[in-house]
């Protein structure tokens, strides 16, 4: 089997639908499982009480907001360098979900910060750089929308995405580089996590749920983008009856 044929919108289009269905099912299963752990298994936090239960969506959303930006920039770069249509379409499809994850991370952060710090918002390095990430996503989408020729929009928006990628390590390391009100990482690759096992499990399962959800909606969205951009292609007219 030649897997490279799936880099062509024509072959990827039906595959994306099958994959999206599978990822939606996984997303639903992991969400139910993760929320069960988060609300019924994980104990009350000895410092933060029940307010800490926001982390089961806050941390996965914040991780996804950064990760989606990296993946979006990766596809944008591939599209720019290799001139592959589908790569740019994938980057385009990821942006709204990335923006949504960033918004959720900021919103839930505010709702956690208010009872914990006494403020909805502070201009701390972590929060400010995450807000810049939201503006980068919005800027990327606005730039795309403002250019009529999709191939030119691919190139211009790819450059914006690649310039903005410098912000991702700034977000990630902000809690080490600056003296932030935002707490440092409780989970990292180098240290054992500083939280109860059931709390960590709930957070990781929810992170998996957010992963699966992001993949599923991006696949559905890339199908929509393929339909828009390949509207005149013969293969799409042939398959439109069946899909």
């Amino acid at each position: 089997m030649n897997i490279w044929k799936y880099s062509s919108p024509q072959y990827f289009y039906p595959l994306a639908k099958k994959m999206a269905t599978i990822f939606f099912v996984f997303a639903a299963v992991f969400t139910v499982w993760g929320l069960y752990i988060g609300f019924f298994v994980a104990p009350t936090d000895f410092q933060q009480g029940e307010s800490y239960r926001i982390i089961f969506i806050h941390v996965p959303a914040a991780w996804m907001s950064m990760l989606i930006y990296l993946i979006m920039s990766f596809w944008a770069a591939i599209g720019l360098i290799m001139n592959t249509r589908l790569s740019s379409m994938m980057a385009h499809a990821l942006a709204p979900t990335g923006a949504l994850m960033t918004f959720v991370a900021l919103w839930t952060g505010a709702f956690w910060g208010r009872p914990t710090w006494g403020a909805w918002w502070v201009w701390d390095a972590r929060l400010t750089s995450e807000l810049i990430l939201l503006f980068l996503y919005i800027g990327y989408m606005a730039l795309r929308a403002s250019i009529e020729d999709p191939r030119r929009a691919d190139r211009a928006s790819a450059i914006l995405a690649l310039v903005g990628v410098v912000n991702v390590p700034i977000i990630y390391f902000s809690v080490q580089w600056w003296n932030t009100l935002h707490q440092g990482a409780s989970v990292s690759l180098t240290k054992s996590p500083s939280m109860a096992t059931s709390m960590l499990t709930g957070m990781l399962v929810m992170a998996l749920a957010f992963w699966m959800y992001s993949i599923a909606v991006s696949l559905i969205r890339v199908r929509r983008i393929i339909r828009d951009r390949e509207a005149n292609a013969a293969w799409l007219a042939e398959s439109s009856g069946a899909q």
């Binding site: 009350t44 009480g49 029940e50 307010s51 919103w107």
Partner: peptide, 14 residues
Amino acid sequence: GGYGLYVWGSYIVT
């Protein structure tokens, strides 16, 4: 535990 507004305010908006 008294944090209903904040916890549900986060989950519902998400």
